[in-house]
Nucleic acid binder design. Structure first.
Length: 665
DNA sequence: AATCGTCTGCTTTTT
DNA sequence: GCAGACGATT
């Protein structure tokens, strides 16, 4: 028997972890130790004699999956832990589909399109479908398609609206590219199990116990998948918090958690309300805020430690003063309490708000990190390298082939590509097939034909080597990639030496990641490419320490910090202007709730009377949510009066520090 | 084909 | 006020 420690759990946590068969709904408030409950439950199930292979834990992010795997690994034997399935909905879908995709008319080597591939395709289709004077925002259409898919709406048969026509065309095109976007992975996994007896009987009973984390964020398809996977025995344990549902705009259905009973009758419902993160004062404010929301399960967070620092609601004259105040105070606080930069976080509604904060932080030489922003994976060289991988795995992936054909230049130019595209659409074949067909080669100039043959040769040789087996694929791929001359071309295209070095490093970094991936996995290039498209959350390089965290409310979910600043608590920002029109005020309130509950020790909320919006200063009013948190331990003030407060000895000393910093900078 | 200038229109973004 | 898109210019 394993030595997991169930006695570390509080009574509710214990009840949740040791629930036997049948559905369980665990309403886990912020900071209530839900990960501990999930991992304990897995350990408990194993101790009861459940085979590890028959347990599935689903998370939303790969990071969460990795962390859960690691925590379990510390509780039970490594060999047993390895046999558990802990993954995201999307990677689970990929597993399902890689086995049986042919039943749906895809090849098993289908490509996975990420956000930018997808947008690129939508752009192309809009350009081809819309009349010259019709303009259609590709981002908007893309979101619409995504929502439609997650609601299970098939593309319209008759192209009544332009957006509908684009959707239909987009779906057809992806299919013919043998590619799936993120939504397709779910749609198709569900379809496969629904429509095909063989797949159904296998997946209905593949797992005996299911655990789903962050259940409030599931969409209709994900719920459907959960239902299918537990069709034989509803041993489903879902963990979530309706009050932290903030992804409704992305298709998440709070209804999944609110109406859990509809899908899984007579569940055990367990509330985890004891909070181990924040002070009583912070929790009180959070409770007062969230009880204004209709349609909730209802929870009241409490903490064993009473009292704590007061919550400060501070008024600033404008956003610059707001940012400067935060930066100043963090600097001062850190010195006075000899804390770490990592203890502080500043939360904002919109990424645009981070800019002015950055400026203030840089001014005072405070190290910071911005979570989110442009991804490593959106770098050109990274996309190109992964493009080569996609082409090797699925030459019929036109989008990747197009990306890769011209870089480096190899004698197959725009004109040739254009001609090949024409032929491919005439013959309804892939670009690769058209380009390398005898018919096309005859039509080309001898030089061009030779270039195409050479390219095909290189590709096929590498494909041949990859097919020999899943070992040494990293080396094979690296050799192939280096031989293309891509790197030299990349360097040449850079304006400065430093840029060239940076980009080359990104490439080498990625190749190294593949080599490391290969040591731990057996799925070779295919698996690597999948994990690169599904897992964009890279481990950040710890080159310069981390610093103060600047982060959006959304991205902060699940994190905690001793000292938290919420900036821009104004009507129109939080709640966002558009949420009033769209009727999503509840979700905005939950967003603030998420923000409040990130703070462990001290919470400061700031709002401005003026703000530079779109260039000019506009008058702002305080967020209506702030009067809802009014109560014990909530203080009001202004940044001015705090700045003008008589300085303590420490802050006088600090003043010199700051001066020194400015002089040295 | 690349660069410049002007126009437009503004959230959040786990996969 | 700025990024991204698009059209005109070299």
């Amino acid at each position: 028997m394993s030595d997991f420690r169930l006695f570390d759990l509080n009574p509710e946590q214990y009840k949740a972890a040791t629930h036997g068969d049948g559905p369980v709904l665990i309403l886990a408030g912020a900071g209530s130790g839900k990960t501990r409950v999930i991992t304990s439950r897995i350990a408990w199930l194993l101790a009861q004699g459940t085979a590890a292979e028959r347990i599935l834990a689903v998370t939303f992010t790969n990071k969460a999956a990795r962390e859960m795997q690691a925590r379990i690994g510390r509780m039970i034997e490594k060999e047993v832990a390895k046999k558990l399935t802990i993954c995201t909905f999307h990677s689970l879908s990929v597993r399902i589909l890689r086995q049986h995709a042919s039943l749906l008319g895809y090849k098993e080597n289908f490509s996975i399109y990420d956000e930018s591939d997808t947008i690129g395709l939508v752009k192309k289709i809009i350009a081809r479908t819309a009349a010259k004077d019709e303009k259609l925002d590709h981002q908007l259409v893309r979101n619409l398609i995504s929502k439609a898919k997650s609601l299970g709406h098939a593309p319209p048969e008759n192209d009544e609206t332009l957006a509908g026509a684009v959707y239909a065309r987009y779906s057809r095109e992806l299919k013919s590219l043998n590619a799936m976007d993120f939504d397709d992975l779910l749609v198709n996994a569900v379809r496969l199990i629904t429509d095909h007896d063989e797949a159904r009987s296998y997946w209905n009973s593949r797992y005996q116990y299911l655990l789903v984390d962050e259940f409030q964020d599931t969409n209709r398809l994900q719920l459907e998948l959960v239902c299918q996977l537990s069709a034989l025995e509803p041993n489903v344990c879902v963990v979530g918090d309706d009050d932290q549902s903030i992804y409704g705009w992305r298709g998440a259905e709070v209804a999944n958690i609110l109406e859990f009973e509809r899908h899984f009758p007579n569940p055990a419902v367990i509330k985890l309300e004891q909070n181990y993160r924040s002070t009583d004062i912070i929790l009180g404010a959070a409770n007062r805020l969230i009880r204004n929301n209709p349609r909730r399960r209802g929870k009241n967070l409490w903490s064993a430690t009473k009292g704590g620092e007061a919550i400060r609601i501070l008024r600033a004259d404008d956003d610059r003063q707001e940012a400067e105040f935060v930066a100043n105070e963090i600097l001062q606080f850190k010195h006075e309490n000899s804390g770490k930069w990592e203890d502080f976080a500043v939360l904002f509604r919109m990424n645009a708000q981070s800019r002015i904060l950055e400026e203030s932080f840089r001014e005072l030489k405070i190290p910071y990190r911005i979570i989110g922003g442009k991804s490593f994976f959106d770098r050109r060289e990274v996309k190109d390298l992964l493009g080569y991988a996609s082409v090797l795995l699925n030459p019929d992936d036109d989008v990747s082939l197009l990306r890769v054909l011209g870089s480096p230049p190899r004698g197959i130019g725009a004109t040739t590509t254009e001609l090949a595209l024409d032929q491919s659409s005439e013959e309804n074949s892939s670009l690769y097939r058209a380009l390398t067909s005898a018919k096309f080669l005859e039509r080309c100039a001898t030089k061009t034909a030779a270039a195409i043959r050479r390219f095909r040769e290189e590709l096929e040789i590498c494909r041949g080597q990859l097919e020999m087996g899943p070992t040494r694929q990293a080396q094979t791929f690296t050799d192939f990639f280096m031989a293309t001359g891509y790197l030299e071309d990349l360097r040449k295209s850079c304006k400065t030496e430093a840029e060239a070095d940076g980009r080359e490093e990104n490439v080498r970094d990625l190749l190294k990641t593949f080599a490391e991936y290969e040591k731990r996995h057996t799925e070779g290039l295919r698996g690597f490419a999948d994990s690169m498209s599904l897992d964009r959350d890279r481990e950040e390089k710890d080159d310069s320490g981390t610093g103060v965290t600047l982060i959006t409310f959304h991205a902060a979910k699940g994190l905690e910090f001793p000292e938290v600043y919420l900036v821009g608590a104004e009507d129109g920002i939080l709640p966002h202007e558009r949420s009033k029109v769209e009727g999503t005020m509840d979700e905005e309130r939950r967003l603030l709730y998420v923000g409040l509950t990130r703070a462990m020790r001290r919470l400061t909320i700031l709002h401005c009377t003026h703000r530079t919006r779109y260039g000019s200063a506009v008058a702002c009013t305080i967020s209506p949510f702030l009067k809802e948190i009014e109560g014990d331990g909530v203080e009001h003030g202004s940044t001015q009066e705090i700045l003008n407060r008589p300085a303590s000895d420490e802050s006088v000393a600090l003043g010199f520090d700051r001066m020194r910093a400015v002089i040295n900078g």
